[in-house]
Simulated assay, not measured.
Amino acid sequence: MSLPLIPPMLATPGTLPPTAQDARWAYETKQDGQRAVIYLEGDGSLLVRARSGEDITAAYPELRPLGGALGTTPAVLDGEILALDEEGRADFQLLQSRMGLAHAPARAARMAAQTPVHLVLFDVLHLAGSSLLKVPYSRRRGQLEGLGLRGPFWSTPSALVGHGAQALAATREHGLEGLVCKRLDSVYEPGVRSRAWIKIRNMRSEDVIVGGWLPGKGRLTGLPGAVLVGQYAARRLRYVGGVGTGWSEAERAHLAELLRASETDTCPFDPAPRVPGAHWVLPRLVGEVRYSVRTRSGMLRQPSWLRLRPDLTPQDASADLPEDI
């Protein structure tokens, strides 16, 4: 390949820029997908590399026509591969059925027909033989949008300059993952987690019931490494996931005492989840967790522990879950 390999620039978790600096930033929707750098050689070929550098081109055959979208102009593009649900929102669970198929092209082709992906492009790093890494974001954005890259399986959504608070509120209103704030004068820093890009993830919180735990390892030996939690639905305690982060050492030690006092040989979840090595407890402890989204089957994605809720009874932790969870 004649084009330079460029690892993607990464955003730093944070909050909205100060109001006085709002006009110096652009705002893009944070997508829940697989980050990818796209290489167009200008000869009709396409190379797609994951954030790790792995060649994942064969996993997404529907993207191949993008190789000829710029004719003979070579380019390196930055973007995110998404699988969209029926409402047009990114669904990471859907995407998981497409990931990992780079070495199974026949299966990838079948899956492409069932669950096609969509590539969202948001930066151009190299164009027509020239590096754009030192060019400010605002100019790179202008050049990217000027390429007119819109097709059946790819698009170039516009970025909003200023109005960050409104943009963030809109992502929350529409149930989107969050917002990425990009400083207009920022250069592209390959492989760097930069403060020039800030990501804000919309998180939700709910009450859950602790029904089990998994032993910790290493420095957590003897303590819970994760708790297994559920919520009541149709009078059954339904398993909604494991939570392994969010405690201080003191909080984890206190939780260990509470769990040991509630041990039982019977799994409280209905149906019982397949969790090797699980220790079950009586479903009496209620806690509050933060998470990003629910999967279609009702599982909590990226959950972290917030606090115990001794003021609540287990019946207070209920949810409207799919019947087939």
Rank of each mutant, 00 (worst) to 15 (best):
A108I: 01
A108V: 04
A109V: 05
A112I: 07
P116S: 02
V117W: 02
H118M: 05
L119E: 02
L119M: 05
L119A: 01
L119P: 00
V120T: 11
L121K: 01
L121M: 03
F122A: 03
F122E: 02
D123V: 00
V124H: 00
L125F: 01
H126W: 14
L127Y: 02
L127G: 02
L127V: 00
L127M: 07
A128G: 15
G129R: 00
S130M: 08
S131A: 09
L132Q: 03
L132V: 00
L133T: 04
K134P: 00
K134A: 14
V135Q: 07
P136R: 01
Y137W: 15
S138N: 12
G142D: 09
G142Y: 07
G142T: 12
Q143V: 07
L144D: 01
G146L: 02
G146W: 02
L147N: 02
G148Q: 00
G148L: 00
L149T: 00
R150Y: 11
R150Q: 12
G151C: 04
P152F: 03
F153H: 15
W154K: 07
W154I: 05
S155Q: 08
S155T: 11
T156A: 03
S158W: 09
S158H: 13
L160A: 12
H163M: 13
H163L: 14
H163R: 15
A165T: 12
Q166D: 14
A169I: 04
A169K: 09
A169Y: 02
A169C: 06
A170L: 12
T171K: 01
T171W: 10
T171S: 04
T171G: 01
R172Y: 11
R172H: 14
E173K: 13
E173R: 13
G175Q: 06
G175E: 05
G175T: 04
E177M: 08
G178Q: 04
G178M: 09
V180I: 15
C181S: 08
K182M: 08
K182G: 04
K182Q: 07
R183G: 05
L184Y: 02
D185A: 09
S186P: 01
V187L: 13
E189Q: 15
G191T: 05
V192M: 03
S194L: 09
R195Y: 10
R195W: 10
R195T: 15
R195N: 14
A196L: 12
A196S: 14
W197E: 03
I198F: 08
I198N: 09
K199D: 07
K199F: 06
K199A: 05
I200C: 04
R201G: 10
R201F: 06
N202P: 07
M203T: 15
M203R: 15
R204K: 11
S205R: 13
S205C: 11
E206P: 09
E206V: 13
D207W: 12
V208I: 13
I209K: 01
I209Y: 00
V210D: 02
G211I: 12
G211E: 11
G211C: 10
G211A: 10
G212K: 03
W213C: 04
L214K: 08
P215M: 11
G216H: 08
G216D: 09
K217D: 11
R219H: 14
R219S: 14
L220A: 15
L220Q: 12
L220K: 12
L220C: 10
G222M: 06
